[in-house]
Design a protein around this nucleic acid. Structure first.
Lengths: 204, 204
DNA sequence: TAATATACATACATGAATGTATGTTGTCAA
DNA sequence: TTGACAACATACATTCATGTATGTATATTA
């Protein structure tokens, strides 16, 4: 029965993989450790060996998946560019289109945007989540500041508000899309939607 | 024990009231019929008499609370005004500020935006929800058409995209606010946030 | 190579939630 | 005024999920 360390890691990962699938399909609350174990072809014993509870699985997934998701944004903003706003537009657009084309990311986004709530036991996860969100906001607002220095945005721009706005907008688009993927196509509309936010409303 | 019809209606409503509170505080999934009954000062027997399951309670709330919420938007758009866009901005702004000031609406919005997911048994509720959303979209896009006729928006405006955009934006702002109400004040920022979407980005 | 710890599987005990069945009492209609 | 039914309360049976305790075989280490 006893496996090597590598085997154990594979087991652990397969448990996490099963969890993502079940969480995003049936919701976090409705998914029991029993079902996760079954889907991963192990017993609950194995699950309890690697994780102490469902929350711990949830948090592991949060770290493994959600953080890189945020990272993707910040990474995109590292690259140098003469027009910061144009660059940001592209990053946002790609992010949204990716949501449609990358099945894995779609599942992850569905899980964290639609299939979980952070009340009760998950309140602690929420704190960590809010922390990451703050970091994201700081990064984004610095980016708007950069745009101001480049002269792409006017001096008196409220970068904090722009940050809140773009975060909300992207999240809203993602949520509305994931909730009903047939409602509209990202491939066809993401660029326009993003463009609209960036001040082109009147001229589209 | 047996009550009059009016008493029964009061009981039913108190069950619904308790459900809203518990759902929004602890999430739909984590709230048992037992706890709802307790909070409403009745037994599970009463709950099962009025509702056949938790889903039925959820759907009753959905009709009673979520629909009027959407209605509030469409109502606001009925009034005549020379500038449709300006009017829409006001409606959106008021909607957001209301979210901060009206505790009841705050609870309702929290419940339906953050504390439930529409997977599994609730999939049927989702269908009805999507249906209402489509109606809202139709109303909104007609409104943009009106703005185009008024000359407030250019002829070639894609009202469908604008509709998707504003829906997503409002929802995003609401969700981000409800998730962490201390992050920013609606009273102070709602008008600016809404204004940003309507093409004022460059000049704020 | 014996001892130990690892990586699980199995078994058990418990509690919570659900659904239903069956009581109980007051109300209203005939 | 009495019977039937409405509006519950109470009791019961069952399922399910959780957590823990224990077993077990195999790497790993001394």
């Amino acid at each position: 029965m006893r496996k090597t360390k590598e085997d154990a890691d594979i087991t652990k990962q397969s448990i996490l993989d099963a969890a993502v699938r079940l969480f995003s399909e049936h919701g976090v609350a409705k998914t029991s450790l029993q079902k996760i174990a079954q889907a991963a072809n192990v017993t609950r014993g194995a699950v309890y060996w690697h994780f102490s509870s469902k929350q711990e699985i949830f948090e592991a997934l949060h770290d493994q998946l959600h953080a890189p998701f945020i990272q993707m944004i910040t990474d995109g903003l590292e690259a140098v560019s003469p027009n910061a706003i144009e660059q940001l537009q592209n990053v946002c657009t790609e992010l949204l289109i990716d949501l449609e084309q990358n099945k894995t990311k779609k599942k992850i986004a569905t899980l964290f945007l639609l299939r979980c709530d952070y009340s009760d036991e998950f309140a602690q996860s929420k704190d960590r989540y809010n922390e990451k969100k703050k970091q994201k906001h700081v990064t984004l607002s610095r980016y708007f500041d950069k745009a101001i220095k480049q002269g792409v945005l006017p001096e008196n721009t409220d970068s904090m508000l722009l940050t809140i706005g773009i975060s909300a907008y992207l999240r809203g688009i993602a949520v509305e899309y994931l909730e009903d993927p047939d409602a509209f196509s990202m491939q066809a509309n993401a660029a326009k939607l993003v463009g609209m936010y960036f001040g082109k409303l009147q001229t589209i």
